[in-house]
Design a protein around this nucleic acid. Sequence first.
DNA 1: CGCGGCTTTGATGTTCATCAAGTAAAGTGG
DNA 2: CCACTTTACTTGATGAACATCAAAGCCGCG
Lengths: 235, 235
Amino acid sequence: MVVVANIQKRKCSCLSCDLRDLVFSNLDEDDIRRVCEAKDEISYSKGEIIHGEGEEIRDFKYLKTGLVKLFRVTGEGDEQIITITRPYEFVSNINAFHEEKYRYSLSALEDSVVCCIKIDLIKNLILKNGGFALKLIAALSKTSENIISLSLEIRKRNLAGRIAFVLLYFAGEIYHSRIFELPVSRKEIADLISMSSANVIRTFSEFRRDGIIKTTGRTIEIADMNKLEVISRRG
Amino acid sequence: MVVVANIQKRKCSCLSCDLRDLVFSNLDEDDIRRVCEAKDEISYSKGEIIHGEGEEIRDFKYLKTGLVKLFRVTGEGDEQIITITRPYEFVSNINAFHEEKYRYSLSALEDSVVCCIKIDLIKNLILKNGGFALKLIAALSKTSENIISLSLEIRKRNLAGRIAFVLLYFAGEIYHSRIFELPVSRKEIADLISMSSANVIRTFSEFRRDGIIKTTGRTIEIADMNKLEVISRRG
DNA sequence: CGCGGCTTTGATGTTCATCAAGTAAAGTGG
DNA sequence: CCACTTTACTTGATGAACATCAAAGCCGCG
């Protein structure tokens, strides 16, 4: 599947952007306008690569809508998924300020819109607006922190515990619902929790057999939240 | 062992501090002097806690000399080691700018000296000095990035590969020598790579039997660097 | 000197990866 | 739109990798 990314230079809407509070609240109207003029909003379809490992970092990117996975591919061709996140996280930018090239790839798990601002413009804003810099530091730290914390949570659990944790993560953090369409394949879950896909599938089957979840295709319903939480804690 | 941390307010030496290049190179002499006046240099003996999980974050801390481990303790009382680093990394500060309390503990693996600067002073410097802010962002990003990268490297390997990797990490990144005094117990290595200490020890024994390493107590000599690298890559 | 913690090794059992084979689903080309 | 191809999913069987348990030796420290 080769889909050409849909670049849209929208009419300026940054002044009223939902995400303005994130880090841009310290900018005055002039600066916001400058950012607005210079930005590109790019739409990606499910499955598309937003940026690849090794690509030059030109833009400060953040997710406006959608769902993405951050990952890398090992020398043996195995995918390691670092995190899966919704908007309000700056996963693209965890190395944008100390490296030239992306260390990790980012792809869209659902149709997504990414706001791209020239990284030099952001650096200029940091230079002249300390309040902005401080907010940005907080946002970047939080993003990295979440990644680190996720990895600690996963690595302390066994197979069943990891899968319970991931299901609760999707239900709680991503979809805010006991019923949701799983946005990733079984293999991708395997790549996130560092287990084999066969055993991920097996565990899903066991959870289904034990009445903990109900599945139809990729739609998942958590039928017994308590049991799942116990498994996540115990595992 | 209870040792009272040795707080020393040294004569101002920040102007000539080796670490000044890190992020403080953008400060003018007045600011450096202000930082200098306000800072505490605290010495910690091997084994001491520098800051504990849940403690309030008051200072921006960085390691001047020594070796530290960043870790947390799970609900079951197991230690998870996040990273082990030398100076020039800002491991204490990965959540200093977006949280009130330390999420992770830091302790000294070797006698260490930590420079402590009131976090509010640092925040003020960010607010008024954009160049400083930019450098700080780069340093913080790099620190987080290294932690994330370490965890990816570890999790893609099996037991033997993880241990080979860790030995190469100590030899290459920490001690710059094929022979070194291992600063951590076998159990701590286990807590770093998420394996049981019995199997860590077993693997050490195998490496010894195969002539890959030589050990006398905690002194380790890498006898066959090539083999160790192969195991680290293959494993 | 004796105690407790760290280390070591072996034996045993559990957990998980791997392999294989089959089914369902989804994309592809005529 | 249907046949074809590929990819994802599923399950069982097998073996490898790793955890756990137990017992003994070592070392440092009070």
